[in-house]
């Protein structure tokens, strides 16, 4: 299934960040659930709460994709792809680790400790609501296939093979 692509021959770690029990914060783990079905060959990880442990998991020869709920001025459900090594993440863009060290701080910590991976891309989904035990809001749930598609493209899938995989699993909203 895996196609040729920029990262096709590199070890790729896909990390879903967020709390499954806090509304749209669960979008990162939700995308990872689908990645595991559609592309089980990819190494995946769900990180809930404090993210500082990620620093110890990243290695210099690794390519990392992080899927996270973000909060900016965009429309809820908007999907953005950000090169975290070329862009300074702000707390406004990476929210919702309800405890301890968030994604922006984790990237900065890894930078200071010389533990950044070779590449680090953040697939962000604009979130709307973070109520305890709430499900994903409609707009954010509808954005999961697009976020998944971005992950697959970063993993080296072609657009056609990514679309086919998503259709196979009936994930098209």
């Amino acid at each position: 299934m895996r196609a040729e692509g920029a990262l096709a021959d590199r070890p790729l770690l896909v990390i879903g960040v967020g709390n499954r029990d806090r509304g749209d914060d669960a979008v990162g783990p939700a995308v990872i659930d689908h990645v595991r079905k559609v592309a089980p060959q990819l190494q995946t990880l769900v990180a809930e709460g404090d993210l500082s442990d990620l620093v110890l998991r990243w290695t210099p020869n690794q390519d990392v994709v992080v899927v996270d709920a973000v909060r900016s001025a965009r429309r809820p459900g908007s999907v953005t792809v950000t090169d975290a090594l070329a862009t300074e993440l702000t707390t406004e863009e990476s929210l919702l680790s309800s405890h301890g060290v968030g994604l922006a701080e984790t990237v900065e910590l890894a930078r200071l400790l010389d533990r950044l991976p070779r590449s680090l891309v953040v697939v962000g989904v604009e979130a709307q609501s973070f109520g305890p035990f709430d499900p994903l809001t409609e707009d954010v749930a509808a954005a999961v296939p697009l976020a998944l598609q971005e992950v697959l493209l970063l993993a080296g899938f072609t657009m056609d093979s990514a679309s086919a995989a998503i259709e196979t699993w009936d994930l098209v909203p």
Binding site: V101, E105, E108, L109, L112, L113, D114
Partner: peptide, 14 residues
């Protein structure tokens, strides 16, 4: 912040 400590005390933070 705790992150800022890492600039001066990287070994301890690690």
């Amino acid at each position: 912040s705790g992150i800022a400590i890492a600039a001066d005390h990287p070994e301890m933070v690690e």
